[in-house]
Every structure is written in C-alpha cells, then in structure tokens.
Simulated assay, not measured.
Amino acid sequence: MGRHRAAEPPRRGPVRSVPGRIAVTTGITCCLGLVGVAGVGEARQPHPDVREALADRAAVEQRASRDHTRAVPPVATSSPTPTPTKTPKEVVRPRHPRPVAGLDQRQMDNAKAIVDVGRDMRLPRRAMVVAVATAMQESDLYNLASDVVPASFDHPHQGSGSDHDSVGLFQQRPSSGWGTVAELMRPAYAARAFLSALVEVRGWEDMSVTGAAQAVQVSAFPGAYAKHERRAATVVAALA
C-alpha cells in the first residue's frame, strides 16, 4: 500500500472586521471592532460609521472630563448685616447708698429696704413715698426694739421705744396680727407687711400721703405724716 499524503490544511482567507463586535480567536486580537490576525498583514481601517461613533464618544468623554474638573465658583448670596442689639445694662445699686435729705447711713439703708420691697412688688413710686413717710413718723426710720417686748432685743435693732408692743420701722404690733416679733424686726418683712396692707385700701392712689398712711396705721395723730412727704419723695427719688 502506498502512503496517503496528508491532506493540506485549508487555506484561510482574510478575516473580516465586524463593526461593533469584539471577536476572540486563536492568534487574533480585537479592539473596538478592529480584528488583527498575527502574521496576516495590517488591520483594515474601521468602517466610516465606526470612526464617527468613536469620534463622538471621545468628544463626549472629553467634555465630561472638563466639566468634572472645572471649579465652580460659589454663588454669592447677599444677606443684610445684622444690626447689633444693645442689651440694657443692669443697674447696680450700692448696698449702702449715699444719704440724702438729712438722713444718716442707718436711716438711708432702712429707706432702701423699703424701696427695694416696693420695686419687688412692682408698685408705683407713690406707694414707696407713702411707706417711707410713714416710717419717718413712726420710728424716725430706725429699726426699734420695744421696752415692753424683751424678746425684741434679741434681734438686730437701732434703739427702742415703749409704745405698747410696737416694734420695727413701722411700729407694728405682734398682738394685732402683723407678724411675730422676729419677723417685724426685719425691715424687709415690715415693709412688705405695710405695703401689702396699703394696696388693699380702695383708692389709695388718689389719697394724700396722710390719708393713705392713716388708712393703714390708724394712728392717734393722723396729720403727722404730711410733714414728711417732701423728704420722703427726695429719698425715694434717690433710691428708685
């Protein structure tokens, strides 16, 4: 038998490029629709439609890159400059105000205690004038103990009186329900007790100082309060 000659491998023709496809085969490299065969010559030029599509894509990517890296300036917003508001300064009142109207320091301090209570109760200045004038008449604006009440000397005092069991700036009597001896010997308490009774008097704002004071104190000498009105007004004006 003779030997058969091996059949020659079929010859391959050039591989066509298919636009828009990526083909992978042995010895073939494809990129973006271009197919190259190793050892088979140069790759054919892409179809005109492919070239146009690639050019459009490159332009889009270039614009996107520029837009991504472009610095966008901040938008200036005009807002009115706020006007600084001025906060009212707190009035710092001295603990021991300078005496006026011929008072000494102890009397002035007691007048301050009366005015401070009136301010705390949000009363008009007229009420403070009535209260200071009353204390001027009753105790000469001193915090008095009572010779009749020995317990009153156990508390801070600035002299003493002997009118029944009357004590303090307004000579209020514990036996009449104004408060305990200890309470009435405190100027602030005594002032609040007086002013609380004053505002309960109907029409006190329209009364004279004498009439308003007498309505609270029920004194045996009602006309005595009037002589202290001018000095009391001067003192309150210096403190209020």
Results as ranks from 00 to 15, higher is better:
residue 1 M to P: 12
residue 3 R to Q: 08
residue 4 H to P: 08
residue 6 A to N: 10
residue 11 R to H: 02
residue 12 R to W: 03
residue 12 R to H: 05
residue 13 G to F: 05
residue 16 R to H: 04
residue 16 R to M: 05
residue 19 P to K: 02
residue 19 P to N: 02
residue 22 I to D: 12
residue 25 T to Q: 13
residue 29 T to R: 15
residue 31 C to L: 11
residue 33 G to H: 04
residue 34 L to K: 12
residue 35 V to F: 14
residue 38 A to P: 10
residue 39 G to T: 07
residue 43 A to I: 14
residue 45 Q to V: 11
residue 45 Q to E: 09
residue 49 D to G: 11
residue 50 V to M: 10
residue 54 L to V: 07
residue 57 R to Q: 07
residue 58 A to G: 08
residue 59 A to D: 03
residue 60 V to F: 13
residue 65 S to K: 13
residue 66 R to W: 13
residue 67 D to K: 15
residue 69 T to D: 09
residue 70 R to M: 12
residue 72 V to C: 11
residue 72 V to H: 09
residue 74 P to N: 14
residue 74 P to R: 14
residue 76 A to K: 13
residue 81 T to F: 15
residue 81 T to H: 14
residue 84 P to N: 09
residue 86 K to F: 15
residue 87 T to K: 15
residue 87 T to N: 13
residue 89 K to F: 07
residue 89 K to R: 12
residue 90 E to L: 15
residue 91 V to E: 13
residue 94 P to C: 12
residue 96 H to Q: 11
residue 96 H to V: 08
residue 97 P to Y: 13
residue 98 R to I: 05
residue 99 P to G: 00
residue 100 V to E: 04
residue 105 Q to L: 13
residue 106 R to Q: 08
residue 108 M to Q: 10
residue 109 D to R: 15
residue 111 A to R: 02
residue 121 M to S: 04
residue 122 R to E: 04
residue 123 L to E: 00
residue 126 R to F: 11
residue 128 M to N: 01
residue 129 V to I: 06
residue 132 V to P: 06
residue 134 T to W: 01
residue 136 M to H: 03
residue 144 L to V: 02
residue 149 V to K: 11
residue 157 H to C: 04
residue 160 S to I: 03
residue 160 S to H: 09
residue 164 H to S: 10
residue 166 S to V: 03
residue 170 F to K: 09
residue 172 Q to F: 12
residue 176 S to Q: 06
residue 178 W to I: 01
residue 181 V to D: 01
residue 181 V to F: 08
residue 183 E to S: 13
residue 183 E to Y: 10
residue 183 E to A: 13
residue 186 R to G: 04
residue 187 P to I: 04
residue 189 Y to S: 08
residue 193 A to W: 06
residue 195 L to K: 03
residue 196 S to L: 12
residue 199 V to E: 00
residue 199 V to W: 00
residue 199 V to N: 01
residue 204 W to I: 01
residue 207 M to L: 09
residue 207 M to A: 07
residue 210 T to Q: 06
residue 215 A to Y: 00
residue 217 Q to G: 03
residue 220 A to K: 06
residue 222 P to I: 00
residue 226 A to T: 03
residue 229 E to F: 02
residue 230 R to G: 04
residue 230 R to E: 01
residue 230 R to S: 03
residue 230 R to W: 04
residue 235 V to H: 09
residue 236 V to K: 07
residue 239 L to I: 00
